[in-house]
Design a protein around this nucleic acid. Structure first.
Length: 122
DNA sequence: AGAATGACGTATG
DNA sequence: GCATACGCCATTC
């Protein structure tokens, strides 16, 4: 594994629960704004799907990569739904509500708290 | 060693 | 607004 894949994994692992990120966003975080494709390429070679929640990485449109990834249809969607990710009527992820913002993820895990509070804790 | 290729995104026609 | 083209990095044949 080159540094590229390693960096991709490191970033994807930071995506909190109930939140999604995009290939382009991950690419931008690693200083390669034009390398969105190869983020997916790296995830494809992912050897540790547990440690690397690649199902939280979606298209910028909110579409999922079902068909190539996970080898199953809707598997990714089900995983996200269980995490509390909202889906639109079109079957796409509600990017407005669930897109991971690295800026607000700087401290421990405020997203998790916010997510938990929204889920029904409060 | 050179060519093909692959979970995307943006720019152009 | 839709279709096409190109860029990017690493791996495989």
């Amino acid at each position: 594994m080159g540094a590229f894949s390693d960096e991709v994994f490191a970033i994807v692992r930071k995506i909190p629960r109930g939140r999604v990120s995009t290939y382009g966003q991950v690419a931008r975080l690693m200083g390669r704004p034009r390398s969105a494709r190869y983020v997916g390429w790296a995830l494809r070679a992912n050897e540790e799907p547990v440690k690397t929640p690649c199902h939280r990485v979606v298209f910028k449109d909110g579409r999922l990569a079902e068909g190539y990834a996970f080898g199953g249809e809707g598997v990714q969607r089900r995983l996200l739904e269980e995490e509390g990710v909202a889906f639109l009527d079109d079957g796409r992820v509600d990017m407005e509500a669930c897109l991971w913002r690295p800026d607000e993820a700087l401290p421990c895990r405020p997203d998790d708290i916010d997510w938990a509070r929204e889920m029904g804790d409060a």
